[in-house]
Amino acid sequence: MMPQLVTVRVKRPDRHAVRIWVPVLPVVLVLSPVVALALLGGAVACHIYRIDVVRALGTGWRIVCALPGSRFDVEFDRTAVLVAIR
């Protein structure tokens, strides 16, 4: 299943934590022209490097479908960014 929601939380010691919820489907729909160009560029790159385009697209889709449940935590100095994909 494709990810539905991305939650981003930024924590700083001197301020309150900021939490942002980003729905994935509306963002993909708004950015669909860019996604189409990226797919076309990927297909050209696959052709140049002699990689099967269908197999590459299938592998990319499997990676996207495996994202729900992932969590990324990045800490730098005293600021932490937490990203959860649902």
Rank of each mutant, 00 (worst) to 15 (best):
D14K: 05
D77H: 06
L37Q: 11
A36C: 10
A84C: 05
Q4G: 05
L5K: 15
A45D: 09
V8S: 03
F72L: 12
V35Q: 05
D73C: 03
Y49M: 08
L29E: 14
P23W: 06
W21K: 08
V74T: 03
V27I: 13
L5Q: 14
G42L: 14
P23V: 03
H47T: 15
G60W: 09
H47V: 14
G69E: 00
V10H: 05
M1D: 07
L39H: 11
V64F: 08
R71M: 01
V64P: 00
R55H: 09
G42A: 13
V83H: 00
L29F: 04
V30M: 06
R71E: 04
I20C: 04
G69V: 03
G69C: 04
V81L: 09
T59N: 13
R15T: 14
R15I: 08
C46N: 14
L67M: 12
L67H: 02
L31R: 10
C46D: 14
V81C: 03
V35R: 03
R71W: 00
F76L: 10
L82S: 08
K11D: 11
Y49T: 10
V54S: 12
Y49C: 07
R78D: 13
A80H: 05
W21P: 00
I63A: 10
A38W: 14
G69T: 02
M1T: 07
L25V: 07
V18S: 06
I20R: 09
L25C: 01
V83W: 00
A45Q: 10
L37D: 05
V24C: 02
M2I: 04
R9G: 00
I20G: 01
G42P: 03
I48V: 15
R62Q: 09
V34P: 01
V53N: 08
L57A: 13
M2G: 00
P26Y: 06
A43F: 11
A56N: 06
G42I: 07
L40M: 11
S32W: 12
H47D: 08
S32E: 06
D77W: 01
I48Q: 14
G58S: 10
A36D: 07
S32K: 07
R86H: 02
V44W: 13
L67C: 06
L25N: 04
D14C: 01
L39M: 15
L82Q: 02
R50Q: 15
